[in-house]
């Protein structure tokens, strides 16, 4: 008799296989083929699409994507560390404060991005207010640039940085800080030499958890960057729609996936699996 657990796994496995793994396989196949005259995909088989990833024409977009994801990650860590530190020392209010961090997360990502368009656009709130106060005569170009995209990414993924840092700081032995103080360390010295090194695993986890979705972002650069601040995700979408170059779009997707997997692998190898 076949064990029951096999049947339990069967539907989940079927969905994963047919609608996730098989599609990824098709992308692998497409990435090795050539774009047809009418936008289809066919033979000959080639590595040309992967070679094109290093074309300077696209290199600019790839480099910018890494720079923007890096900036967003840095911003999230800088914002999240003091916040996580404060929450971990808040006693009974911990749950409330954590829930307040997570609250925007439960609302639509699209709406959260739109909220920033509402603030930043030429006729948006910030420009209207500055104009009303007579500080500017022409609207400041706040929307549709790299800065707007980075702010949107930080806003979108900040909770991903707060949670791992919080759980790291929460487990920190308070006695170590007391020991540092007893031995004459000033609070900032204890922070720099005791707390920061001990939160390195939390920092790494937070960094990877923000960097991965930022690098693969599509909606944020699309809405806040306009056409001017494209990232890899937008380039992929572009290849599958207007450019109709599915093989190159597939190669781009797999390149992005490779970076994601490499980062995750490095994190898991270093800090173990129990943290995920």
């Amino acid at each position: 008799m076949m064990r029951l657990r096999a049947f339990f796994l069967l539907p989940a496995w079927a969905f994963t296989l047919l609608l996730f793994l098989a599609p990824m396989g098709i992308i692998v196949v497409y990435s090795l083929q050539t774009k047809g005259v009418y936008g289809g995909v066919g033979e000959p088989w080639t590595f040309e699409n992967y070679v094109r990833l290093f074309d300077p024409l696209y290199g600019v977009i790839l480099l910018r994507s890494f720079a923007m994801a890096g900036a967003a990650t840095f911003g999230c860590l800088v914002l999240a560390f003091p916040l996580a530190l404060y929450i971990s020392r808040s006693g009974t209010r911990k749950t409330l404060l954590l829930n307040l961090v997570m609250l925007p997360f439960w609302t639509s990502f699209l709406v959260r991005t739109y909220a920033w368009m509402f603030l930043l656009r030429d006729t948006g709130l910030i420009n209207s207010m500055l104009f009303g106060m007579g500080l500017i005569n022409e609207p400041l170009p706040l929307l549709y640039n790299d800065g707007a995209v980075v702010v949107g990414l930080i806003y979108g993924y900040l909770p991903f940085a707060v949670l791992p840092l919080y759980s790291n700081l929460e487990r920190l032995d308070k006695g170590l800080l007391e020991a540092a103080a007893d031995l004459g360390a000033k609070p900032w010295e204890a922070m720099l030499h005791v707390v920061l090194p001990l939160t390195a695993p939390g920092m790494r986890a937070a960094g990877v958890l923000v960097f991965i979705p930022s690098l693969g972002a599509y909606l944020t650069p699309d809405l806040l960057g306009g056409g001017k601040s494209m990232m890899i995700g937008n380039l992929v979408q572009n290849q599958f729609t207007s450019a109709r170059d599915w093989p190159f779009g597939s190669a781009l997707s797999l390149g992005l996936m490779a970076v994601v997997m490499l980062l995750l692998w490095a994190l898991l190898r270093r800090d173990g699996e129990e943290m995920l």
């Binding site: 609608l19 996730f20 693969g216 972002a217 995700g233 997707s253 996936m257 994601v260």
Partner: peptide, 24 residues
């Protein structure tokens, strides 16, 4: 292997999942 491949979609950028499903 099983759990890894099932969790993989959580870290895959949505645009990639989307185009892969569309292609399929």
């Amino acid at each position: 292997l099983l759990s890894g491949s099932m969790y993989l979609s959580l870290v895959t950028p949505e645009i990639i999942t989307g185009i892969a499903m569309l292609a399929t």
